[in-house]
């Protein structure tokens, strides 16, 4: 985005801040990696990373932790992006978990998330010996995230110590680490959900089509619409998938991601609909509502 006057608009300021963070990571760490989860925030993150290093290619790999339960459309989108922009894509699945067929139905969402996401992430970070992992989390998403630094220190066990964070002054980031420690870095910390959408719109960033409404097969379970993305979703007795106009506000594992009924099939329609919305984005994610403080607890254990 180019400046038109002698000061920057809020989106220009946010963009510049994120680019600066990306460059600081590339300059300060030996083995950075960027978490790529395929959603809208990851799409913005990818776009900003390309801008930060243009005309060079992104100087670190992108890592996708594949739980094997992602929407099919997410995987095809991921592979197409990697080809289009020529970034180095790494995909990791917890093979032990896969062999034991760990799934959200038989093992519950908490255990499944722990094994296929948190443990898988730790495995991938350890195997790659990454000293910095860039993520797309935003401070407006959840209360414990609102407290996290942009450069967020992790000990050798990947744990976060929320009561003892390093002070973070101006944009002078302390990137120093002891052996085995690592940093989680969040370039989108100061972006809101609305900023993400308006930026996607004004920059013409491609996002997975699941965000746009169309007829999809869904079943309704305790008030949540679950899309029948493949034949692995066990149907309860008498349960028949119906075609409904639905879209997703957030993308994750399809059995754990609630769809919303919507007619918004274009980006402007989504933004308008979101503005009229009275519920927060993470409501569609089933893993956060287990208990108060649950995200903080997961993060202490190494979840992103």
């Amino acid at each position: 985005m180019s400046a038109t006057q002698n000061s920057l608009s809020h989106l220009q300021a946010l963009e510049a801040e994120s680019i600066e963070i990306f460059r600081e990571v590339a300059s300060s760490f030996e083995r950075p990696v960027m978490m790529y989860s395929i959603g809208k925030d990851s799409s913005v993150l990818l776009h900003l990373a390309r801008k930060a290093f243009y005309p060079s290619k992104i100087p670190f790999p992108l890592l996708h932790v594949d739980t094997t339960w992602k929407f099919k459309e997410m995987i095809s989108f991921r592979d197409r992006m990697a080809e289009q922009y020529g970034f180095d894509l790494l995909v990791h699945t917890n093979q032990e978990g896969k062999e034991q067929n760990i799934n959200p139905f038989d093992h519950g969402s908490a255990r499944y998330t722990d094994i296929m996401k948190t443990v898988a992430l730790r495995q991938a970070l350890n195997a790659g010996q990454y000293d910095a992992a860039i993520g797309g989390a935003r401070r407006d998403e959840e209360k414990s995230r609102a407290k996290e630094r942009i450069f967020s220190h992790r000990n050798a066990q990947h744990a976060w110590d929320p009561k003892n964070q390093r002070p973070e002054l101006w944009r002078v980031f302390n990137t120093r680490l002891a052996p085995g420690e690592s940093m989680r870095v969040f370039p989108l910390s100061n972006w809101t959900e609305l900023d993400i959408w308006t930026y996607i719109y004004s920059e013409g960033i491609e996002i997975p089509p699941l965000y746009l409404s169309k007829k999809r097969p869904v079943v309704e379970r305790s008030g949540t619409l679950i899309m029948v993305d493949d034949e692995r979703l066990p149907l309860n007795e008498g349960e028949v998938p119906r075609e409904e106009m639905v879209r997703f506000r957030t993308l994750g594992c399809y059995p754990l991601t609630g769809a919303i009924r919507s007619e918004a099939a274009t980006l402007p329609e989504i933004i308008m609909e979101m503005n009229a919305s009275t519920t927060s984005e993470r409501e569609g994610r089933l893993i956060d509502s287990d208990q108060a403080g649950s995200m903080e607890k997961k993060k202490q254990e190494g979840y992103f």
Binding site: E142, K143, S144, R145, A146, K147, P162, K163, A292, G293, E296, K297
Partner: peptide
Amino acid sequence: LVDGLTAER
């Protein structure tokens, strides 16, 4: 609304 850490609450 704003006190986000368990210890804070």
